[in-house]
Design a protein around this nucleic acid. Structure first.
Length: 563
RNA sequence: UGGGGAGUCGCCAAGUGGUAAGGCAGCAGACUUUGGAUCUGCGAAUCGGGGGUUCGAAUCCCUCCUCCCCAGCCA
Protein backbone atom coordinates (compact mmCIF):
# COMPACT_ATOMS: atom_id res chain seq x y z
CA UNK A 1 0.00 0.00 0.00
CA UNK A 2 2.71 2.39 0.90
CA UNK A 3 6.21 1.86 -0.29
CA UNK A 4 7.79 3.80 2.49
CA UNK A 5 5.92 1.89 5.14
CA UNK A 6 6.90 -1.41 3.61
CA UNK A 7 10.47 -0.32 3.40
CA UNK A 8 10.54 1.00 6.92
CA UNK A 9 9.10 -2.14 8.40
CA UNK A 10 11.48 -4.25 6.41
CA UNK A 11 14.69 -2.74 7.61
CA UNK A 12 15.79 -1.33 10.91
CA UNK A 13 18.59 -1.88 13.35
CA UNK A 14 16.44 -3.89 15.72
CA UNK A 15 15.57 -6.39 13.03
CA UNK A 16 19.24 -6.63 12.17
CA UNK A 17 20.01 -7.57 15.75
CA UNK A 18 17.22 -10.13 15.86
CA UNK A 19 18.34 -11.58 12.55
CA UNK A 20 21.78 -12.01 14.03
CA UNK A 21 20.32 -13.68 17.12
CA UNK A 22 18.38 -16.01 14.90
CA UNK A 23 21.49 -16.77 12.92
CA UNK A 24 23.47 -17.67 16.02
CA UNK A 25 20.53 -19.34 17.68
CA UNK A 26 20.75 -17.28 20.84
CA UNK A 27 17.04 -17.54 21.56
CA UNK A 28 16.36 -20.62 19.50
CA UNK A 29 14.60 -18.53 16.89
CA UNK A 30 12.10 -17.29 19.44
CA UNK A 31 10.95 -13.66 19.53
CA UNK A 32 8.92 -12.41 22.46
CA UNK A 33 8.51 -8.72 23.24
CA UNK A 34 6.61 -6.77 25.82
CA UNK A 35 5.23 -3.31 26.39
CA UNK A 36 5.87 -2.20 29.98
CA UNK A 37 3.95 0.99 30.82
CA UNK A 38 3.88 2.52 34.26
CA UNK A 39 0.23 3.15 35.14
CA UNK A 40 0.77 6.76 36.11
CA UNK A 41 -0.70 8.50 33.10
CA UNK A 42 -2.41 8.00 29.78
CA UNK A 43 -0.76 6.64 26.67
CA UNK A 44 0.34 9.09 23.99
CA UNK A 45 1.45 8.83 20.38
CA UNK A 46 5.01 8.19 21.56
CA UNK A 47 3.82 5.12 23.42
CA UNK A 48 1.96 4.08 20.29
CA UNK A 49 5.28 4.03 18.48
CA UNK A 50 6.69 1.69 21.13
CA UNK A 51 3.59 -0.51 21.23
CA UNK A 52 3.39 -0.82 17.47
CA UNK A 53 7.11 -1.49 17.29
CA UNK A 54 6.84 -4.32 19.80
CA UNK A 55 3.80 -5.65 17.97
CA UNK A 56 5.33 -5.50 14.53
CA UNK A 57 8.56 -7.11 15.65
CA UNK A 58 6.70 -9.95 17.32
CA UNK A 59 4.45 -10.37 14.32
CA UNK A 60 7.25 -10.27 11.78
CA UNK A 61 9.02 -13.14 13.50
CA UNK A 62 5.96 -15.15 14.44
CA UNK A 63 6.40 -14.23 18.09
CA UNK A 64 4.29 -12.77 20.86
CA UNK A 65 3.99 -9.60 22.84
CA UNK A 66 3.09 -9.24 26.50
CA UNK A 67 1.54 -6.34 28.31
CA UNK A 68 3.14 -5.78 31.66
CA UNK A 69 2.46 -2.90 33.95
CA UNK A 70 5.53 -1.59 35.68
CA UNK A 71 3.79 -0.91 38.95
CA UNK A 72 6.63 -0.66 41.41
CA UNK A 73 5.82 2.76 42.81
CA UNK A 74 2.45 2.78 44.60
CA UNK A 75 2.52 6.48 45.34
CA UNK A 76 2.27 7.35 41.66
CA UNK A 77 0.20 4.59 40.19
CA UNK A 78 -3.53 4.20 39.94
CA UNK A 79 -6.09 1.72 38.67
CA UNK A 80 -7.66 4.43 36.51
CA UNK A 81 -4.51 4.48 34.45
CA UNK A 82 -4.27 0.73 34.01
CA UNK A 83 -7.84 0.69 32.76
CA UNK A 84 -7.16 3.56 30.40
CA UNK A 85 -3.98 2.01 29.06
CA UNK A 86 -5.64 -1.34 28.43
CA UNK A 87 -8.47 0.38 26.61
CA UNK A 88 -6.14 2.41 24.43
CA UNK A 89 -3.96 -0.57 23.60
CA UNK A 90 -6.94 -2.68 22.55
CA UNK A 91 -8.13 0.19 20.41
CA UNK A 92 -4.74 0.30 18.73
CA UNK A 93 -5.18 -3.35 17.93
CA UNK A 94 -2.71 -4.82 20.39
CA UNK A 95 -3.37 -8.41 21.44
CA UNK A 96 -1.58 -9.91 24.40
CA UNK A 97 -4.04 -12.80 24.68
CA UNK A 98 -3.83 -14.02 28.28
CA UNK A 99 -0.49 -12.41 28.91
CA UNK A 100 -1.47 -9.41 30.96
CA UNK A 101 1.06 -9.10 33.75
CA UNK A 102 2.11 -6.75 36.50
CA UNK A 103 5.53 -6.31 37.97
CA UNK A 104 3.71 -6.60 41.28
CA UNK A 105 2.90 -10.21 40.34
CA UNK A 106 6.58 -10.86 40.93
CA UNK A 107 7.08 -9.13 44.27
CA UNK A 108 7.48 -12.43 46.13
CA UNK A 109 9.99 -13.76 43.64
CA UNK A 110 11.86 -10.47 43.63
CA UNK A 111 12.04 -10.57 47.41
CA UNK A 112 13.43 -14.08 47.32
CA UNK A 113 16.03 -13.04 44.78
CA UNK A 114 17.03 -10.10 46.94
CA UNK A 115 17.59 -12.49 49.83
CA UNK A 116 19.71 -14.60 47.50
CA UNK A 117 21.87 -11.61 46.60
CA UNK A 118 22.29 -10.74 50.27
CA UNK A 119 23.37 -14.30 51.00
CA UNK A 120 25.86 -14.05 48.16
CA UNK A 121 27.24 -10.89 49.72
CA UNK A 122 26.01 -8.86 46.76
CA UNK A 123 23.51 -6.65 48.57
CA UNK A 124 23.32 -4.81 51.84
CA UNK A 125 20.99 -2.74 53.96
CA UNK A 126 22.16 0.85 54.06
CA UNK A 127 21.18 3.26 56.80
CA UNK A 128 22.54 6.31 55.07
CA UNK A 129 19.94 9.03 54.58
CA UNK A 130 18.82 10.05 51.13
CA UNK A 131 21.02 13.10 51.22
CA UNK A 132 23.97 11.07 52.37
CA UNK A 133 23.50 8.53 49.65
CA UNK A 134 23.62 11.31 47.14
CA UNK A 135 26.78 12.72 48.68
CA UNK A 136 28.44 9.34 48.79
CA UNK A 137 27.57 8.68 45.19
CA UNK A 138 30.17 11.15 43.96
CA UNK A 139 29.73 13.13 40.78
CA UNK A 140 30.05 12.59 37.08
CA UNK A 141 33.77 13.14 37.30
CA UNK A 142 34.57 11.98 40.83
CA UNK A 143 34.15 8.46 42.14
CA UNK A 144 31.81 7.84 45.03
CA UNK A 145 32.80 6.36 48.35
CA UNK A 146 31.63 3.32 50.20
CA UNK A 147 28.84 3.59 52.70
CA UNK A 148 29.93 2.81 56.27
CA UNK A 149 27.21 0.15 56.24
CA UNK A 150 28.53 -1.51 53.13
CA UNK A 151 30.32 -4.31 54.90
CA UNK A 152 27.67 -5.50 57.27
CA UNK A 153 27.61 -9.25 57.65
CA UNK A 154 25.29 -11.45 55.65
CA UNK A 155 23.45 -12.39 58.82
CA UNK A 156 22.94 -8.79 59.84
CA UNK A 157 21.76 -7.82 56.36
CA UNK A 158 19.35 -10.73 56.29
CA UNK A 159 17.90 -9.71 59.63
CA UNK A 160 17.72 -6.03 58.73
CA UNK A 161 16.11 -6.71 55.37
CA UNK A 162 13.46 -8.82 57.03
CA UNK A 163 12.83 -6.02 59.48
CA UNK A 164 12.46 -3.65 56.57
CA UNK A 165 9.89 -5.90 55.08
CA UNK A 166 8.10 -6.24 58.41
CA UNK A 167 7.69 -2.51 58.73
CA UNK A 168 10.09 -2.09 61.60
CA UNK A 169 11.77 0.91 60.01
CA UNK A 170 10.40 4.25 59.01
CA UNK A 171 10.21 5.47 55.44
CA UNK A 172 13.61 6.68 54.37
CA UNK A 173 15.38 5.16 57.31
CA UNK A 174 17.18 2.57 55.24
CA UNK A 175 17.24 0.90 51.84
CA UNK A 176 18.57 -2.28 50.31
CA UNK A 177 21.43 -1.67 47.92
CA UNK A 178 23.33 -3.82 45.47
CA UNK A 179 27.03 -4.04 46.23
CA UNK A 180 28.70 -3.29 42.94
CA UNK A 181 31.26 -0.52 42.56
CA UNK A 182 31.15 2.95 44.07
CA UNK A 183 33.88 4.07 41.67
CA UNK A 184 32.18 2.94 38.48
CA UNK A 185 32.12 5.60 35.76
CA UNK A 186 28.55 4.49 35.19
CA UNK A 187 26.61 6.00 38.08
CA UNK A 188 23.97 3.32 37.80
CA UNK A 189 26.51 0.83 39.04
CA UNK A 190 27.46 2.79 42.18
CA UNK A 191 25.55 0.50 44.52
CA UNK A 192 22.07 1.15 43.16
CA UNK A 193 19.10 1.07 45.50
CA UNK A 194 17.04 -2.08 45.11
CA UNK A 195 14.31 -1.54 47.68
CA UNK A 196 12.94 1.48 49.45
CA UNK A 197 10.36 1.67 52.23
CA UNK A 198 6.93 3.05 51.31
CA UNK A 199 3.98 2.75 53.63
CA UNK A 200 1.62 3.17 50.75
CA UNK A 201 -1.32 1.13 49.56
CA UNK A 202 -0.58 -0.46 46.23
CA UNK A 203 -3.37 -0.59 43.66
CA UNK A 204 -3.00 -4.36 43.41
CA UNK A 205 -1.13 -5.69 46.42
CA UNK A 206 -2.84 -3.39 48.88
CA UNK A 207 -0.92 -3.21 52.16
CA UNK A 208 0.90 -6.49 51.79
CA UNK A 209 4.21 -4.75 51.24
CA UNK A 210 5.90 -1.74 52.75
CA UNK A 211 9.04 -2.18 50.69
CA UNK A 212 8.91 -1.73 46.95
CA UNK A 213 11.49 -2.66 44.31
CA UNK A 214 13.11 0.01 42.20
CA UNK A 215 12.62 -0.08 38.45
CA UNK A 216 16.09 -1.48 37.78
CA UNK A 217 15.66 -4.26 40.26
CA UNK A 218 12.26 -5.23 38.93
CA UNK A 219 12.48 -4.75 35.21
CA UNK A 220 15.07 -7.20 33.96
CA UNK A 221 13.89 -9.99 36.21
CA UNK A 222 10.31 -9.42 35.12
CA UNK A 223 11.44 -9.76 31.51
CA UNK A 224 13.35 -12.87 32.50
CA UNK A 225 10.38 -14.46 34.24
CA UNK A 226 8.21 -13.88 31.20
CA UNK A 227 10.79 -15.31 28.82
CA UNK A 228 11.10 -12.08 26.92
CA UNK A 229 13.76 -12.28 24.22
CA UNK A 230 14.06 -8.66 23.17
CA UNK A 231 13.39 -5.99 25.72
CA UNK A 232 12.87 -2.80 23.73
CA UNK A 233 13.13 0.48 25.58
CA UNK A 234 14.07 4.06 24.98
CA UNK A 235 17.52 5.58 24.75
CA UNK A 236 17.76 6.89 28.28
CA UNK A 237 18.01 3.31 29.53
CA UNK A 238 21.15 2.65 27.58
CA UNK A 239 23.40 3.05 30.57
CA UNK A 240 21.03 1.01 32.68
CA UNK A 241 21.73 -2.00 30.49
CA UNK A 242 24.92 -2.93 32.35
CA UNK A 243 22.87 -3.01 35.54
CA UNK A 244 20.08 -4.95 33.84
CA UNK A 245 22.71 -7.45 32.79
CA UNK A 246 24.46 -7.49 36.15
CA UNK A 247 21.35 -8.44 38.12
CA UNK A 248 20.49 -11.22 35.69
CA UNK A 249 24.03 -12.52 35.74
CA UNK A 250 24.32 -12.47 39.54
CA UNK A 251 21.03 -14.31 39.82
CA UNK A 252 22.02 -16.74 37.12
CA UNK A 253 18.64 -16.62 35.46
CA UNK A 254 17.41 -16.48 31.85
CA UNK A 255 18.82 -13.42 30.14
CA UNK A 256 16.83 -11.34 27.63
CA UNK A 257 18.50 -8.74 25.41
CA UNK A 258 17.71 -5.10 26.04
CA UNK A 259 17.71 -2.91 22.92
CA UNK A 260 17.25 0.85 23.03
CA UNK A 261 15.65 3.07 20.41
CA UNK A 262 14.86 6.77 20.14
CA UNK A 263 11.52 7.83 21.49
CA UNK A 264 9.18 9.83 19.32
CA UNK A 265 9.11 13.60 19.40
CA UNK A 266 6.57 15.58 17.42
CA UNK A 267 6.78 19.28 16.81
CA UNK A 268 4.12 21.72 18.02
CA UNK A 269 3.22 19.48 20.92
CA UNK A 270 4.75 17.98 24.05
CA UNK A 271 5.26 14.37 24.88
CA UNK A 272 6.63 14.27 28.39
CA UNK A 273 4.29 12.84 30.96
CA UNK A 274 5.14 15.63 33.33
CA UNK A 275 4.09 18.28 30.86
CA UNK A 276 0.96 16.46 29.78
CA UNK A 277 -0.12 16.09 33.38
CA UNK A 278 0.44 19.76 33.91
CA UNK A 279 -1.72 20.67 30.92
CA UNK A 280 -4.51 18.56 32.37
CA UNK A 281 -4.19 19.58 36.00
CA UNK A 282 -3.90 23.28 35.33
CA UNK A 283 -6.83 23.19 32.95
CA UNK A 284 -5.03 24.31 29.83
CA UNK A 285 -6.89 21.54 28.06
CA UNK A 286 -10.19 19.93 28.87
CA UNK A 287 -8.70 16.65 30.05
CA UNK A 288 -6.59 13.70 28.97
CA UNK A 289 -8.96 13.15 26.08
CA UNK A 290 -8.97 16.73 24.87
CA UNK A 291 -8.74 16.40 21.07
CA UNK A 292 -5.72 18.66 21.08
CA UNK A 293 -3.73 16.29 23.26
CA UNK A 294 -1.23 13.87 21.70
CA UNK A 295 -2.72 11.17 23.92
CA UNK A 296 -4.29 8.15 22.32
CA UNK A 297 -7.57 8.94 24.01
CA UNK A 298 -7.39 12.52 22.79
CA UNK A 299 -6.54 11.52 19.26
CA UNK A 300 -9.36 8.99 19.26
CA UNK A 301 -11.81 11.67 20.30
CA UNK A 302 -10.44 13.93 17.61
CA UNK A 303 -11.15 11.30 14.99
CA UNK A 304 -7.83 9.61 14.40
CA UNK A 305 -8.04 5.95 13.44
CA UNK A 306 -5.78 3.16 14.66
CA UNK A 307 -4.90 2.56 11.02
CA UNK A 308 -3.72 6.12 10.61
CA UNK A 309 -1.55 5.84 13.69
CA UNK A 310 -0.16 2.56 12.48
CA UNK A 311 0.66 4.02 9.09
CA UNK A 312 2.38 6.90 10.80
CA UNK A 313 4.48 4.66 12.99
CA UNK A 314 5.48 2.59 9.97
CA UNK A 315 6.44 5.69 8.08
CA UNK A 316 8.62 7.28 10.73
CA UNK A 317 10.64 4.13 11.23
CA UNK A 318 12.85 3.50 14.22
CA UNK A 319 16.44 4.43 14.86
CA UNK A 320 18.79 5.55 17.58
CA UNK A 321 19.16 9.23 16.79
CA UNK A 322 17.07 11.77 18.64
CA UNK A 323 14.65 13.23 16.19
CA UNK A 324 11.53 15.32 15.97
CA UNK A 325 8.97 14.33 13.42
CA UNK A 326 7.01 17.01 11.62
CA UNK A 327 3.39 16.82 12.73
CA UNK A 328 2.48 17.33 9.06
CA UNK A 329 3.40 13.71 8.56
CA UNK A 330 0.86 12.63 11.15
CA UNK A 331 -1.77 14.77 9.48
CA UNK A 332 -0.89 13.27 6.12
CA UNK A 333 -1.50 9.82 7.58
CA UNK A 334 -5.01 10.57 8.85
CA UNK A 335 -5.98 12.16 5.59
CA UNK A 336 -4.61 9.18 3.74
CA UNK A 337 -6.70 6.78 5.80
CA UNK A 338 -9.85 8.86 6.11
CA UNK A 339 -9.89 9.72 2.42
CA UNK A 340 -10.57 6.11 1.63
CA UNK A 341 -13.17 5.44 4.29
CA UNK A 342 -14.89 8.62 5.46
CA UNK A 343 -18.36 9.17 3.94
CA UNK A 344 -18.70 12.60 2.32
CA UNK A 345 -21.28 15.04 3.58
CA UNK A 346 -21.89 18.73 3.21
CA UNK A 347 -21.54 21.10 6.10
CA UNK A 348 -21.29 24.87 6.12
CA UNK A 349 -19.17 26.26 8.92
CA UNK A 350 -19.68 29.98 8.37
CA UNK A 351 -23.04 30.36 6.68
CA UNK A 352 -23.86 32.97 4.07
CA UNK A 353 -27.48 33.05 3.00
CA UNK A 354 -28.19 32.60 -0.70
CA UNK A 355 -31.62 33.13 -2.24
CA UNK A 356 -32.26 31.74 -5.71
CA UNK A 357 -34.61 34.35 -7.04
CA UNK A 358 -35.81 32.27 -9.97
CA UNK A 359 -36.40 29.10 -7.96
CA UNK A 360 -40.07 28.50 -7.07
CA UNK A 361 -40.96 29.37 -3.50
CA UNK A 362 -41.88 26.40 -1.38
CA UNK A 363 -40.39 23.90 -3.81
CA UNK A 364 -38.05 21.19 -2.63
CA UNK A 365 -36.30 18.51 -4.60
CA UNK A 366 -34.00 15.66 -3.72
CA UNK A 367 -30.65 15.61 -5.42
CA UNK A 368 -28.43 12.59 -5.72
CA UNK A 369 -25.04 12.71 -4.06
CA UNK A 370 -22.17 10.24 -4.04
CA UNK A 371 -21.12 9.11 -0.57
CA UNK A 372 -17.49 8.54 -1.38
CA UNK A 373 -15.88 8.92 -4.78
CA UNK A 374 -12.98 6.82 -3.49
CA UNK A 375 -15.25 3.97 -2.56
CA UNK A 376 -18.01 2.91 -4.99
CA UNK A 377 -19.43 0.56 -2.36
CA UNK A 378 -20.29 3.55 -0.19
CA UNK A 379 -23.28 4.22 -2.44
CA UNK A 380 -25.31 7.38 -2.77
CA UNK A 381 -27.76 9.46 -0.79
CA UNK A 382 -30.13 12.31 -1.54
CA UNK A 383 -29.84 15.82 -0.28
CA UNK A 384 -32.70 18.32 -0.31
CA UNK A 385 -32.49 21.47 -2.41
CA UNK A 386 -34.62 24.59 -2.15
CA UNK A 387 -34.83 28.30 -2.82
CA UNK A 388 -32.87 29.40 0.23
CA UNK A 389 -29.46 27.97 0.86
CA UNK A 390 -26.36 28.54 2.93
CA UNK A 391 -22.96 28.54 1.39
CA UNK A 392 -19.58 29.14 2.99
CA UNK A 393 -18.66 32.78 3.53
CA UNK A 394 -15.22 31.98 2.14
CA UNK A 395 -16.78 30.89 -1.11
CA UNK A 396 -17.84 34.42 -2.00
CA UNK A 397 -15.71 37.47 -2.60
CA UNK A 398 -17.21 40.78 -3.57
CA UNK A 399 -13.95 41.85 -5.14
CA UNK A 400 -12.35 38.58 -6.17
CA UNK A 401 -8.61 38.37 -5.78
CA UNK A 402 -6.48 37.06 -8.62
CA UNK A 403 -6.72 33.27 -8.92
CA UNK A 404 -9.88 33.24 -6.80
CA UNK A 405 -12.43 31.42 -8.87
CA UNK A 406 -15.30 30.85 -6.55
CA UNK A 407 -18.47 32.95 -6.43
CA UNK A 408 -18.36 36.69 -7.06
CA UNK A 409 -20.79 39.25 -8.45
CA UNK A 410 -21.81 38.24 -11.94
CA UNK A 411 -19.89 35.00 -11.72
CA UNK A 412 -21.25 31.49 -12.11
CA UNK A 413 -20.23 28.43 -10.05
CA UNK A 414 -21.57 24.95 -9.53
CA UNK A 415 -23.31 23.85 -6.36
CA UNK A 416 -22.02 20.38 -5.61
CA UNK A 417 -24.52 17.81 -6.92
CA UNK A 418 -26.87 20.73 -7.61
CA UNK A 419 -27.14 23.46 -10.19
CA UNK A 420 -25.03 26.23 -11.62
CA UNK A 421 -25.85 29.47 -9.90
CA UNK A 422 -24.92 33.01 -10.79
CA UNK A 423 -24.58 35.86 -8.34
CA UNK A 424 -26.80 38.75 -9.35
CA UNK A 425 -26.87 40.91 -6.28
CA UNK A 426 -25.21 41.43 -2.92
CA UNK A 427 -27.33 42.44 0.07
CA UNK A 428 -25.66 44.28 2.94
CA UNK A 429 -26.76 45.45 6.34
CA UNK A 430 -26.45 48.97 7.73
CA UNK A 431 -22.82 48.32 8.66
CA UNK A 432 -21.97 47.20 5.20
CA UNK A 433 -21.66 43.52 6.07
CA UNK A 434 -22.69 41.10 3.41
CA UNK A 435 -25.75 39.32 4.75
CA UNK A 436 -27.25 37.71 1.69
CA UNK A 437 -26.64 36.89 -1.93
CA UNK A 438 -29.33 37.05 -4.58
CA UNK A 439 -28.57 34.49 -7.23
CA UNK A 440 -30.24 32.81 -10.16
CA UNK A 441 -29.93 29.14 -10.99
CA UNK A 442 -29.95 27.43 -14.35
CA UNK A 443 -32.61 24.69 -14.33
CA UNK A 444 -30.84 22.96 -17.19
CA UNK A 445 -27.79 22.24 -15.06
CA UNK A 446 -29.45 19.93 -12.52
CA UNK A 447 -26.91 17.51 -11.18
CA UNK A 448 -24.05 19.77 -12.17
CA UNK A 449 -23.62 19.46 -15.94
CA UNK A 450 -24.51 22.12 -18.48
CA UNK A 451 -26.09 20.72 -21.66
CA UNK A 452 -24.52 23.50 -23.66
CA UNK A 453 -21.13 22.36 -22.48
CA UNK A 454 -20.18 25.52 -20.66
CA UNK A 455 -17.79 25.16 -17.79
CA UNK A 456 -17.48 26.76 -14.40
CA UNK A 457 -14.24 27.20 -12.55
CA UNK A 458 -15.49 26.22 -9.12
CA UNK A 459 -17.76 23.80 -7.32
CA UNK A 460 -18.89 24.82 -3.88
CA UNK A 461 -20.75 23.05 -1.10
CA UNK A 462 -24.06 24.18 0.38
CA UNK A 463 -27.00 23.16 2.53
CA UNK A 464 -30.67 23.93 2.17
CA UNK A 465 -31.55 26.50 4.82
CA UNK A 466 -34.92 24.99 5.56
CA UNK A 467 -33.59 21.45 5.87
CA UNK A 468 -30.15 21.88 7.39
CA UNK A 469 -29.41 20.88 10.95
CA UNK A 470 -27.61 23.15 13.34
CA UNK A 471 -24.26 21.98 14.58
CA UNK A 472 -21.41 22.98 16.80
CA UNK A 473 -18.06 22.53 15.19
CA UNK A 474 -14.77 22.56 17.05
CA UNK A 475 -11.74 23.46 15.01
CA UNK A 476 -8.35 22.49 16.33
CA UNK A 477 -4.92 23.74 15.55
CA UNK A 478 -1.49 22.94 16.94
CA UNK A 479 -1.50 22.98 20.74
CA UNK A 480 1.69 25.04 20.77
CA UNK A 481 2.55 27.88 18.49
CA UNK A 482 6.26 27.10 18.52
CA UNK A 483 7.76 23.95 17.01
CA UNK A 484 9.63 22.90 20.15
CA UNK A 485 7.85 24.06 23.29
CA UNK A 486 10.06 24.35 26.34
CA UNK A 487 13.26 24.36 24.32
CA UNK A 488 14.04 28.00 24.87
CA UNK A 489 16.07 28.91 27.89
CA UNK A 490 13.96 30.40 30.65
CA UNK A 491 10.63 30.17 28.85
CA UNK A 492 7.90 28.08 30.41
CA UNK A 493 6.27 25.85 27.82
CA UNK A 494 2.87 26.94 29.13
CA UNK A 495 3.51 30.40 27.74
CA UNK A 496 3.96 28.88 24.32
CA UNK A 497 0.50 27.38 24.13
CA UNK A 498 -1.31 28.37 20.96
CA UNK A 499 -4.14 30.67 22.08
CA UNK A 500 -6.09 29.64 18.99
CA UNK A 501 -5.66 25.91 19.35
CA UNK A 502 -9.41 25.50 19.66
CA UNK A 503 -12.03 27.53 17.91
CA UNK A 504 -15.67 26.74 18.57
CA UNK A 505 -18.24 27.50 15.93
CA UNK A 506 -21.75 27.27 17.29
CA UNK A 507 -23.79 28.27 14.27
CA UNK A 508 -22.73 25.79 11.63
CA UNK A 509 -25.20 23.89 9.47
CA UNK A 510 -24.99 20.36 8.20
CA UNK A 511 -27.08 18.46 5.71
CA UNK A 512 -30.10 16.63 7.17
CA UNK A 513 -28.60 13.16 6.69
CA UNK A 514 -26.46 14.09 9.66
CA UNK A 515 -29.48 14.62 11.89
CA UNK A 516 -28.81 11.60 13.99
CA UNK A 517 -25.14 10.87 14.40
CA UNK A 518 -23.36 8.88 17.03
CA UNK A 519 -20.19 9.83 18.87
CA UNK A 520 -17.14 8.48 17.11
CA UNK A 521 -18.64 8.56 13.61
CA UNK A 522 -16.36 10.16 11.05
CA UNK A 523 -17.20 12.14 7.95
CA UNK A 524 -15.56 14.30 5.40
CA UNK A 525 -17.31 17.62 5.03
CA UNK A 526 -16.57 18.16 1.38
CA UNK A 527 -13.97 20.78 0.66
CA UNK A 528 -13.54 21.44 4.39
CA UNK A 529 -12.00 18.55 6.24
CA UNK A 530 -12.53 15.39 8.24
CA UNK A 531 -14.80 15.51 11.25
CA UNK A 532 -15.63 13.18 14.09
CA UNK A 533 -18.78 13.26 16.19
CA UNK A 534 -17.91 14.30 19.72
CA UNK A 535 -19.29 12.55 22.83
CA UNK A 536 -20.75 15.90 23.86
CA UNK A 537 -23.33 15.33 21.15
CA UNK A 538 -26.92 15.04 22.38
CA UNK A 539 -30.16 14.46 20.50
CA UNK A 540 -30.62 18.23 20.51
CA UNK A 541 -27.07 19.26 19.77
CA UNK A 542 -24.62 17.82 17.28
CA UNK A 543 -20.96 18.43 18.00
CA UNK A 544 -18.23 17.76 15.46
CA UNK A 545 -14.50 17.79 16.01
CA UNK A 546 -12.33 18.64 13.07
CA UNK A 547 -9.80 15.85 12.89
CA UNK A 548 -7.80 17.56 10.19
CA UNK A 549 -8.53 19.95 7.38
CA UNK A 550 -8.29 19.02 3.72
CA UNK A 551 -5.27 20.30 1.89
CA UNK A 552 -6.15 23.81 0.85
CA UNK A 553 -4.67 25.10 -2.37
CA UNK A 554 -6.49 28.42 -2.12
CA UNK A 555 -5.17 29.05 1.38
CA UNK A 556 -1.71 28.49 0.02
CA UNK A 557 -2.29 30.97 -2.81
CA UNK A 558 -3.63 33.52 -0.37
CA UNK A 559 -0.56 33.09 1.76
CA UNK A 560 1.66 33.69 -1.25
CA UNK A 561 -0.40 36.71 -2.22
CA UNK A 562 -0.31 38.09 1.30
CA UNK A 563 3.44 37.80 1.52
C1' U B 1 36.79 17.54 32.13
C1' G B 2 33.79 10.63 33.80
C1' G B 3 30.50 7.16 31.34
C1' G B 4 26.81 6.02 27.57
C1' G B 5 24.63 7.37 22.72
C1' A B 6 23.86 10.13 18.01
C1' G B 7 25.34 13.13 13.60
C1' U B 8 22.91 11.14 5.55
C1' C B 9 18.10 16.91 1.70
C1' G B 10 13.68 21.74 5.69
C1' C B 11 11.61 16.88 8.69
C1' C B 12 11.83 11.39 9.26
C1' A B 13 14.92 7.49 7.24
C1' A B 14 17.48 3.40 3.97
C1' G B 15 22.42 2.31 2.99
C1' U B 16 27.24 -2.04 6.52
C1' G B 17 33.78 -0.77 0.61
C1' G B 18 31.58 -0.16 -5.47
C1' U B 19 30.32 5.05 -6.84
C1' A B 20 23.66 8.64 -2.17
C1' A B 21 16.44 4.50 -1.69
C1' G B 22 11.84 6.10 -0.15
C1' G B 23 8.29 9.10 2.51
C1' C B 24 6.59 14.00 4.55
C1' A B 25 7.05 19.12 3.44
C1' G B 26 8.16 22.46 -0.83
C1' C B 27 8.02 23.94 -6.07
C1' A B 28 6.05 23.09 -11.19
C1' G B 29 2.47 20.64 -14.30
C1' A B 30 -1.69 17.03 -15.70
C1' C B 31 -6.48 15.59 -14.35
C1' U B 32 -10.80 16.78 -11.66
C1' U B 33 -18.87 18.04 -10.32
C1' U B 34 -14.32 18.28 -3.39
C1' G B 35 -8.68 24.47 -5.53
C1' G B 36 -9.73 17.06 -2.13
C1' A B 37 -7.91 12.50 -4.08
C1' U B 38 -4.78 10.70 -8.04
C1' C B 39 -0.66 11.11 -11.56
C1' U B 40 3.99 13.37 -13.55
C1' G B 41 8.33 16.24 -13.05
C1' C B 42 12.06 19.22 -9.99
C1' G B 43 15.14 19.31 -5.76
C1' A B 44 21.68 16.45 -1.65
C1' A B 45 29.48 21.50 -4.87
C1' U B 46 30.57 18.91 2.44
C1' C B 47 26.67 11.71 3.71
C1' G B 48 29.14 16.96 10.93
C1' G B 49 34.70 18.86 9.74
C1' G B 50 39.79 17.52 8.58
C1' G B 51 43.35 13.83 7.57
C1' G B 52 44.48 8.73 6.04
C1' U B 53 43.85 3.46 3.90
C1' U B 54 41.97 1.78 -0.98
C1' C B 55 41.50 1.28 -8.01
C1' G B 56 37.21 2.94 -5.28
C1' A B 57 34.54 5.14 1.40
C1' A B 58 28.50 7.67 3.83
C1' U B 59 30.45 2.81 4.76
C1' C B 60 37.52 1.04 7.34
C1' C B 61 41.44 3.92 10.49
C1' C B 62 42.98 8.60 13.04
C1' U B 63 41.57 13.28 14.80
C1' C B 64 38.46 17.24 15.84
C1' C B 65 33.43 19.48 16.34
C1' U B 66 28.24 19.48 17.69
C1' C B 67 23.92 17.49 20.03
C1' C B 68 21.34 14.05 23.55
C1' C B 69 21.24 10.98 28.24
C1' C B 70 23.19 9.82 33.43
C1' A B 71 24.74 12.38 40.04
C1' G B 72 15.54 10.07 42.17
C1' C B 73 14.99 5.97 48.23
C1' C B 74 10.97 8.06 39.66
C1' A B 75 10.23 4.98 35.52
Amino acid sequence: MNGAADEASRSNFIRDIIDEHNRTGRFGGRVHTRFPPEPNGYLHIGHAKAILLNMSIAEAYGGKMNLRFDDTNPVKEEQEYVDGIIHDMRWLGADWEDRLFFASDYFDQLYAWAVQLIKDGKAYVDHLSGDEIREYRGTLTEPGKDSPYRNRSVEENLKLFEQMRNGEFKEGECVLRAKIDMASPNLNLRDPVMYRIRFATHHRTGDKWCIYPMYDWAHGQSDSIEGITHSLCSLEYEDHRPLYDWYLDQLGIYHPQQIEFARLNLNHTVMSKRKLIKLVQEGHVRGWDDPRMPTITGMRRRGYTPEAIRLFCDMIGVAKSNSTVDIAMLEYCVRQDLNKRAPRRMGVLRPLKVVLTNYPEGQTEQLNAINNPEDPDAGTRTVPFSRTLYIEQDDFMENPAPKYYRLAPGREVRLRYGYFIKCEDVVKDAQGNIVELRCTYDPATRGGEAPDGRKVKATIHWVSAGHAKAAEVRLYDHLFSVPNPGEDEGVDFIEQLNPNSMQIITNAFVEPSLAEVKPGERFQFERVGYFCVDPDTTPEKRVFNRTVGLKDEWAKIQKQQGA
